[in-house]
């Protein structure tokens, strides 16, 4: 079966001349239908840029990206995206936010009345799925950060995207809320069966959620290692304490440190300490 997302020798260069930065170089990766792939790596490794290229929000300067076998030419409803924050519409109540795509021509065209009715039912179902029933008529800025992200996810799912892209969606949440969101997104993944590409800086999160963890390295941004997660498909919080999980976490963290260029920082730190000693 052909991959859902196919990234072929993708490169991305920002700026020109002395400002030229090679954000991505020769990145190739296939993501299968309904797969859950997480991206981790030191800052500057281009993981967010890669996700944005798949979403069509950034253009690549080399190679090719295929989604559903079609070259990515720009953003589209088949690839919904969830951002870290500031993406909800504060002037719309929760339900109206979720139904936002219904206001778009693309969401209205060629619909039978049965489909329109089904859409209303879907909005209600998503509201329940995300545990938002009590917040249906609330304004987004009345909600906690965790609840706001639930709305953002529900809104992204509304148009039944086959691919869901998430850019550090839980990065601003506290640890407890994040755990709840992890199990929620796994549930959504099982139920709605989207192909999921998920960028994070939290290695534990990356392992717990994913079928595969893609570790990227900076300067130039590239794929360093791909880890198959050795856990059963049904995840439970307790698995975070199993030896396999801890071993993989340790291995990935060590590799991120190795690829981050932090050795030079350590040298600088030593120098500073010496100066202080004098």
């Amino acid at each position: 079966m052909s991959p859902k997302i196919s990234i072929q020798q993708v490169g991305k260069v920002f700026g020109e001349g002395s400002h030229r930065v090679e954000a991505l170089k020769d990145v190739s990766l296939d993501i299968a239908d309904n797969e859950f792939v997480t991206f981790v790596g030191a800052s500057g490794c281009g993981k967010s840029t890669l996700l944005r290229i798949i979403g069509g929000l950034e253009y690549h300067t080399a190679g090719e990206v295929l989604a559903n076998g079609q070259p990515v030419m720009g953003p589209g409803a088949d690839r919904a995206m969830v951002f870290q924050h500031y993406s909800l519409y504060p002037w719309l109540r929760v339900m109206e936010n979720i139904k936002f795509s219904r206001r778009l021509r693309h969401g209205r065209e060629n619909l039978t009345s049965a489909e329109v009715e089904a859409a209303s039912g879907r909005a209600d179902a998503l509201l329940s799925l995300m545990g938002l029933n009590a917040a249906t008529h609330a304004w987004p800025n009345e909600l906690s950060g965790g609840m706001q992200q639930r709305v953002a996810i529900a809104r992204a799912l509304m148009g039944r995207p086959e691919i869901l892209l998430m850019d550090e969606p839980f990065g601003a949440l506290d640890a407890q809320t994040r755990e709840v969101m992890h199990d929620l997104i796994l549930h959504v993944h099982r139920l709605e069966k989207p192909t999921l590409a998920f960028v994070t800086h939290d290695v534990e999160e990356a392992i717990y959620l994913a079928d595969r963890v893609v570790l990227m390295a900076p300067r130039p941004g590239r794929i360093d290692t791909i880890y198959q997660v050795p856990l059963p498909a049904e995840r439970e919080q307790d698995m975070k304490h199993t030896p396999e999980f801890l071993r993989l976490k340790k291995e990935i963290l060590a590799r991120i440190r190795e690829t981050s260029g932090m050795e030079t920082d350590q040298n600088m730190l030593d120098q500073l300490n010496m100066q202080e000693a004098i």
Binding site: S87, S101, G159
Partner: peptide, 8 residues
């Protein structure tokens, strides 16, 4: 960008 990825 959220709107664009919803097909706006």
């Amino acid at each position: 960008e959220a709107a664009q990825t919803m097909g706006a």
